[in-house]
């Protein structure tokens, strides 16, 4: 007899639990930022909880009436638990999906890049909805690329799990390279500076005057003809009877210049970064 009683009690509890799981009826999925209605069954008053990934709602409700969830209560995408507690608690789970693409986070690296450098530029775009949820469904992002010499080209990337990326080489001409990532109404412009590469055909001339020799380079350019920026250091090195002497001097108006006092015959070389220029032999008075 006690066994039958226990069995009946367990059955009753199971039935009750089953019945209570049916107290709340929510849609399986809802779009982020859209209000929804959760229907309820029962008659008593209850405490209602909405547990989301970044937000919690707690309020009193009357079972049997629909519970309206405001749009801003489901702005974050993810798994939500709706719970109603009276004498016991029952719950239902639903998924809030990201809304349509509306925001971009765009990273363009590096901020300065030498010209004519293969795959030196990389761009990564993250696509979000207006509530900063990552848009998981594939979306197309347009990248409008404006080159330093004017022309604009567009390439399109499709997102995977909210991310798209590409690599490109820098172009031969120095200057501003702008990339605008665009999706829906969102535009994110980024600019990087293409700078001259290493010096090419570095050449200097000497003007001796007694024990003094004045040195000046020709305009210093890279192999594509871009002038190296002012301030780039050029090194002049002299070796004569007095030993070895080096002068580091910045480029001013495309050229670099230096002056040495000579002690006998001298060999003078010039270098800029990894580029070596010509070497001169200059005879000075003993």
């Amino acid at each position: 007899m006690p066994r039958i009683f226990t069995l009946c009690t367990l059955l009753a509890v199971a039935l009750l639990a089953f019945a209570q799981d049916d107290v709340l009826h929510a849609p399986k999925t809802v779009s982020a930022g859209k209000s929804l209605s959760i229907s309820t069954s029962g008659q008593s008053s209850a405490t209602f909880y909405l547990l989301g990934p970044s937000h919690v709602v707690k309020r009193s409700v009357q079972l049997g009436q629909d519970i309206t969830i405001a749009a801003n209560d489901v702005a974050t995408s993810g798994t939500y638990q709706a719970i109603a507690c009276s004498s016991s608690c029952s719950s239902t789970v639903f998924q809030v999906l990201p809304a349509s693409p509306a925001r971009l986070s765009f990273l363009l690296h590096p901020s300065r890049v030498p010209v004519s450098n293969g795959n030196a530029i990389n761009a990564t775009a993250f696509v979000f909805d207006r509530y900063r949820n990552t848009v998981l469904s594939p979306a197309k992002v347009d990248f409008h690329i404006t080159l330093p010499d004017g022309p604009t080209m567009t390439r399109t990337g499709q997102t995977t799990r909210g991310i798209t990326w590409f690599e490109m080489g820098s172009t031969p001409k120095q200057g501003r390279l702008q990339v605008v990532a665009a999706i829906a109404d969102a535009n994110e412009p980024r600019v990087i500076q293409q700078v001259a590469s290493d010096a090419c055909h570095l050449h200097m001339t000497a003007s001796p005057s007694g024990r003094i020799v004045k040195l000046e380079t020709d305009p210093i350019r890279d192999c594509a003809g871009n002038a190296l920026p002012d301030g780039t250091i050029v090194s002049f090195t002299k070796i004569d009877n007095a030993g070895r002497s080096t002068v580091d001097t910045p480029i001013k108006k495309d050229k670099a210049s230096a002056q040495f006092q000579l002690s006998g015959n001298a060999r003078i070389s010039v270098a800029c970064g990894v580029a070596l220029g010509n070497e001169l032999s200059v005879g000075g008075r003993q």
Partner: peptide, 21 residues
């Protein structure tokens, strides 16, 4: 990402969750 600035992960988590009022 190519510049090493971001990494995306997919996590399948085994979690027991209990909420208390």
């Amino acid at each position: 990402s190519p510049d090493g600035g971001e990494m995306q992960l997919e996590d399948s988590a085994q979690l027991e969750m209990q909420v208390f009022d």
